[in-house]
Amino acid sequence: MWVVILFLGASLLLYCLLAGADFGAGILEVFMGRGKRRAQRTIIDRALGPVWEANHMWLILMVVILFTGFPAVYSRVSTNLHLPLTAMLLGIIARGCSFTFRHYDAVKGRSQRSYSLFFIYSSVWTPFCLGVVTGALVPGGIDPAATGYLEGYVRPWLRPFPLALGGFTVCLFAFLAAVYLIGESPAGAVRSGFARRAVVASAVAVAVGGLVFWAAEADGIDLAARFLASPAAAACVVGATFSLPVLWLALAREWGWIARILAGGQVALILAAWFAVQFPILVKLKNAPDLTFFNSHAPEATLYQLNLALTFGAALILPALYFLFRVFKSESPAPDAH
C-alpha cells in the first residue's frame, strides 16, 4: 500500500509541477503586454507543444490509482463534488483543444483570437476548479447522508476555504510557469518580462496563501494550529518561506535553472506540508467517519496488482519521459519544423 500512496503523492506533485506550469503559461497570457505578445506566445507554444499531453497524464494516473486503490474515496468525491469536477472537465476540454487548434489550424487568421480567448480563460478556470475540489476534501462539508441538493452537492465546496484554495492554485501555477519560461526564452526583453512576472506572481501567491489561512479560520478549520502541531509541516512551511529571498535573487539575476529548482522545491514543500497535516485522512466527512488511506483501500490482491502495474509502468515511462524532456528542453530553443 505504501508504494501506491507514494505513486499517488508523486503523481499529484508532478501534475502540479509540470501540468500546473502548462496551465500557468495560459494564465500568464492574460497579463501580456500588446507589444511582446507575439514573441511570448511563440515561446509558450514551443514550450508546451511537445509535452502538455504527457504532463496531463499525471492526472489520469491519479484518477486510476484512486478508483482502483481507494474506490470508496473516488466514489464519494465524484458523487458530492459532481459540479466542480464537471466544471473542471469542461475547462480541461477547452484548454487542450484550443491550444492544439491554435497551433495546428492550417489557416492562421482571425480564428486565432478565439482560440486564444478559450485557451486563456480555461487555463485560469481549470486550476481554480482543481483547487476548489482539493479544498473541499478538508473542511468536512461532505455529508454522505445529505438529501437536499444544496446540502449534498453545493455546500461541500461553495465555502471560503475551497474557494480560497482555488485562487491560491491559480497563483501558484502562474508563478511556476513564469519561472520555467525564463529558461525557455532567449535573453532580452521577453526573458526579463517573465522574470518580473515571476516575482510578482510569487508575491501574490504569498498574499493569497495568507488568505487561505484566513479562509480556513472562517470555515472553522484551525489550519494554523494544525500546521504548528506537526513538526514536519512546520518545517516545510519555514523552508518554503525562507527560500523565497534566494529565489528572488535568482530571478533578478535570471538564473534559469536555479530559479526552477527553487520554485519547484517550494511547491513540493507546500504539498508535503499539506500531506503531513492531512495524513492519513483523504476526505473529511460530516456525520460519518473520515475516509482515510487505511479504511478506504481496495483488497490486498488488487493493491498488489496495482503496485505491480505502477512499478512496471514507471520503469517504462520514466526513461521515455526523460528522453522527451532531453530532446525538447535541453539546449537553446531550436527552430521548429512547423
Partner: peptide, 11 residues
C-alpha cells in the same frame, strides 16, 4: 474499480 482497475492501470 478494484476488480477491473488493473486493465485501466495498464491502460
Amino acid at each position: 474499480g478494484p476488480i477491473i482497475g488493473m486493465p485501466f492501470s495498464w491502460e
